[in-house]
Design a protein around this nucleic acid. Structure first.
Lengths: 341, 341
DNA sequence: TGATAATACTTATACGTTTAAGTGAAAAGG
DNA sequence: CCTTTTCACTTAAACGTATAAGTATTATCA
């Protein structure tokens, strides 16, 4: 291991004290340092190739410039988490925005017992963003530990916490409404698990509201809930194809589900949109990759990530800031998977 | 901010010195501590809710239990990096494997001037994995800085560095060979940029070798090189469709390129595989999502990530270990996008 | 029984940084 | 000319942990 060069070395090289070095490095405006001293220090830094040790800085200043990204998943889903391109896109946007302000992202799969607040403490994270909170208890835990946090895709009632959401309910409403406008009456819902405070429950609510407004009664036989995966969509395609009283339209709460569904239907010789109409959710590149191209509810994942980073960093910079809640818009993008009947 | 509880607090609570606390917490077998003392300390830890501060531990022990994942991208591609599900899957696998040994993953987009070794030093990373090295200079930089590293998807000649690759060349060979076996003679290549030490150059080599063995001479007009993206594939579809002497088969060095290509061809009313045969690379879920399902060269991304983590962690645990180079197998998975002619 | 070894700790220093408080010299003010 | 400011630093403590070296007590052995 090559010897690290520290402030001490710079101090010796420049002939000043380590405090002066620290002041120069941090460009502290409240300290006055002679220009030639600044120059001497800067030259020493360049000559020795000094880079500050953020770990040590964190110890002294209690700021690590580290943001944790927590994505609660079951052990089984764990390995797949970032395969879902939504998470990848979110992470990418988060890293991009955070790095502008010199923050780095630490990934944590929240394995087993590791509570968010525990990870945050051990790693001395400045703040964390949690996408898709598991249980409200976790939120309490976080608030109690007094860790700056932004909750993404969580619809719990808690106040005093930053939240970033999209109009999930409206998305569900728009999808169902579109089907209705196109003459459909038997409209199924394919979704991930309907956790009480989760996005799927909201989308489900919107869907149901539209149906109710159209005088259609609830039909539990039209609700299919499982994992948000291509495989589950595929499975559902088979199931729906073999129903005696088959829906003419299916609203999928994720594009990836829709892709699987379309494939599953195709395997059972049902064509989209001729036999079954489909609407997805997310409108990522998957929607374009599908054939025919997928009609979908668009959300701006990059924006979601950007806003999440900003809310968190604002909270870190200025501790007194009010906790905010941002809800981003969604819209229906019409493509080729819905047929008028 | 709630006051942190430190070893000092535990020491006071348990009535021992901080050294003893440290020994108990780290379960050091070379130190002998009375069972009842261990118990007292452990109870104090539980009572006060102590969690170790890894940052401070890092300062003292010079081990952060942090692994950096660096993915060199241009500024423009930056925001998209994890949208490519390959990276997401890799990250996911890496985190999964690393977390088993209590390592966390820090994401770094390697923005601009930040050299790998600089990031590694500032964040005191124990080691880093770089996927798709930019320039050989970076490798030198890393070796000079003496930072444990594993290079993924890099075919440079350097020794003394851990490397993880797949049989890229063989993949290219298999694809072209399959086309040839199916009677094709005009076989195009759609690929990312052909960086000298990159995977695409290897795949290109394999492709060329197969053609040469079949007595087909090099035709630069059959090589299309751009970004690895759906959009570029789409664009290529249009270009290829309008060629006067159109290829009957296209080998795409990524599934996502193939999806775009298929869509682009479809827009020009060319069908796959009737008019043009296509083979992809990766064989992720995209290959299944395509219709018809994509014939593709399969690589095991999760395995790649797992092996990368293991090589790195082995190197960290046991500094004397020889640097290894692992090459994982690929195989051709036949589906529906290649037609015999 | 005295020397040696094993046990069960504690003391003290180090890791690399930040920062409040202190210091001496020069400049400004009366 | 003496006092007060301002300037340009330096000293020293602190952050939370690990660990080499030291110390007292008890057990072992010849």
């Amino acid at each position: 291991m090559v010897k690290r060069v520290s402030v001490k070395d710079i101090a010796r090289e420049a002939g000043v004290s380590i405090a002066t070095v620290s002041y120069v490095i941090n460009k502290r405006t409240d300290q006055v340092i002679a220009p030639q001293t600044v120059k001497r220090v800067e030259e020493a830094v360049a000559r020795l190739g000094y880079v500050p040790n953020l770990g040590a800085r964190a110890l002294a200043s209690r700021k690590t410039k580290l943001i944790g990204l927590m994505i609660p998943q079951t052990e089984k889903e764990q390995r797949l988490m970032f395969s879902n391109s939504f998470y990848g896109e979110f992470l990418s946007g988060l890293e991009y925005e955070a790095s502008k302000k010199d923050y780095s992202i630490l990934i944590s799969g929240s394995r087993g017992q590791q509570s968010y607040s525990k990870v945050a403490k051990t790693r001395s994270l400045d703040g964390i963003v949690v996408v898709g909170v598991d249980s409200p208890g976790d939120v309490e835990d976080l608030k109690k530990a007094d860790i700056p946090v932004v909750l993404v895709d969580y619809w719990g009632p808690e106040t005093g916490v930053n939240k970033v959401n999209i109009e999930d309910k409206r998305g569900g409403y728009l999808a169902a409404r579109h089907f209705l406008d196109m003459g459909h009456r038997k409209i199924a819902l394919a979704t991930g698990y309907l956790k009480a405070q989760g996005v799927n429950a909201q989308r489900h609510d919107g869907y149901r509201q539209a149906l109710q407004e159209a005088g259609i009664e609830d039909d539990p036989g039209m609700i299919f809930s499982g994992t948000v995966s291509y495989e589950y969509g595929l499975e559902l395609g088979g199931i729906i194809a073999s129903m005696e009283d088959r829906p003419t339209a299916v609203f999928c709460t994720a594009d990836i589900l829709a892709l699987g569904l379309i494939k599953g239907l195709a395997k059972a010789s049902l064509r989209v949109p001729e036999d079954v109409s489909v609407i997805g959710f997310d409108d990522g590149f998957l929607a374009l990759a599908a054939s025919p191209e997928l009609t979908s509810i668009r959300q701006d994942v990059a924006k979601k990530a950007e806003v999440s980073a900003q809310l968190l960093i604002d909270a870190l910079d200025d501790k007194g800031i009010a906790q905010r809640s941002v809800v981003l818009q969604v819209s229906l993008v019409e493509r080729g998977t819905v047929k008028r009947i």
